[in-house]
Design a protein around this nucleic acid. Sequence first.
RNA 1: GGGGCUGUAGCUCAGCCGGAUAGAGCGACGGUUUCCUAAACCGUAGGUCGUGGGUUCGAGUCCCGCCAGCCCCGCCA
Length: 599
Amino acid sequence: MLNLSNSLKKHLEKALIKAFPEIAKAAQMAGLSIDPELVPTSRPEFGDFQANIALKLAKSLKTAPRSVAQAIVEELQNDDDFIRLCEPPEIAGPGFINLTIKTINLVEEIKSRLHDPRLGVPSVNKAKSAPIVVDFSSPNIAKEMHVGHLRSTIIGDSIARILEFRGHPVLRINHVGDWGTQFGMLITQLKSVAPKALTTPEVIDLGDLVTFYRQAKERFDQEPAFQATSREEVVKLQRGDPLSIKAWELLCEQSRKEFQKIYSRLDVHITERGESFYNSYLEQVVIDLENSGLLVIDEGAKCVFLEGITGKNGRLLPVIVQKSDGGFNYATTDLAAIRYRFNAAPKGDGACRLIYVTDAGQANHFTGIFQVAKRAKWVPHNARVEHVPFGLVQGEDGKKLKTRSGETVRLRDLLDEAIKRAESDLRRRLNEEGRTEEERFIKNVSTTVGIAAVKYADLSQNRVTNYQFSFDRMLALQGNTAPYLLYAFVRIAGIVRKGGTPDIHTDTFSFETSQEWSLVRQLLKLDEVITEVEEELLPNRLCTYLFELSQIFNRFYDQVPILKANNQAKNSRLALCLLTSNTLKLGLRLLGISTLERM
RNA sequence: GGGGCUGUAGCUCAGCCGGAUAGAGCGACGGUUUCCUAAACCGUAGGUCGUGGGUUCGAGUCCCGCCAGCCCCGCCA
């Protein structure tokens, strides 16, 4: 209903100027316009929208709020366009103006959506729009992906999907940890225990690498000789020694294959551009910070001290961009990345917005480097840099998620488990209902439901809070879960199979019951929800919307006959089914979740 | 010590720019199947929004203090 609420807003603004010209003039002088404070109503019985401005104006006008509202309403009723759009406004409570869209306009909206593949969601002008970088997932080479990466991957992918659907060019960037001191250790260890792995592909898998990495770390902490060799190895790598580079490439390739398996299962597409990509830009970061006068050498390290952020002992906190041994660190890389992403092509991405989807523990780090980048004037005017933080994944005991033996949970095991549980649920139900289905059907449904459940459980929660992981809850057949939404979709598919294709070219849709009108109104809210998520980057708002849509649909399905209704009612109801189906499908797609015809 | 995030029903969580009587789901209790997949629907019970102040016509939401939990705080990412 974006277009309806936008025109309502215009009518209200016009009415405000007419009713209170002096206030409008004063606002204009200050470079503002009066905001009518138009919002969706808090309860359906108040209509579709409410304008709250009268309550605000009452004070400066020294008039009772209800008479302010009355003056606005009188102007509205002199406006023919408004009268065509809306039922007579009602003044309620202390001075709210309640507005109800005329049903004929709602029906028109439904009609236009039945013919619109975008379901009424506007698209930005791609030609004029600069790319948005979504930096997400970002596992480390030679380590297993864990549940933290899962959250980043699922949330980042959904945000990217929503921005893409809105028409923005999106760069999905996998900022993998593919550089740094850990490679010195790892290569040194492999040289001594598995030299073949450094020269021949496919000799070791990621599981082995993780073991070698753990061993290397232990030796690094205990053996001075090992430490020294590792440091030399890092230097060799950074100088571009061909043998070291070759070994490094093999390690990356091995990890990459393993990551790709997870991404394929999750249907996530992402472009790898790891930390190593920025190696050649690091030196310039330090030089330019020095030239701009921000750089301070402290205890041998080159730092930028942050304004207004103190650490221990009350001193300002530094961002270290070059260590006392001359090496660069992650802050340098992140700064180089910010520059590159904002720089115009071909020397950069020419982005207008950077979105980092990482755990909330990195909030301080991002605050720091964003401040440095801004002070160094590397962030263009009107550009945005945003950290999109998310909370920890906890087990049902409220502690950080671990396996029973206390190990980190591997992603592939977690996905396997979800699918396995979905499968046994399905088999039990088939058994109870006496249904028989092909193995292929069972596998497909279990996989889709299992993956959907994992994704939806993560996305449906406000990301900033910690997230309590529970297979039982995410796979529950009722409540705000993926299976519930998928089932609503399946019900519609069932109706369509029974010969329920509506004629959407007819002019005579008519909706009678309150269940139909609730569904109509909910369907028309999609555009508002999508544009809100685009701005706030909170996919859980989309989940809430889809859950409410499913609830309203299930109520309608339960209480209103569709296939058995008379012709005109039947066609109208089938049209609502079709639009609900399309809306659910699109919404779920934007969450990275695919739908099923039967389950 | 400094900073960040969190605190809402027994449990898991929503709550948009400050708006009308704070909402779901689970769990509990009680109903609904000659009818499009009952993986559904309907109903009942359940709240000092951590706490004390402040701002406001109006505060779960904004500001300040306090309490509790989690996370971060110089050369790891």
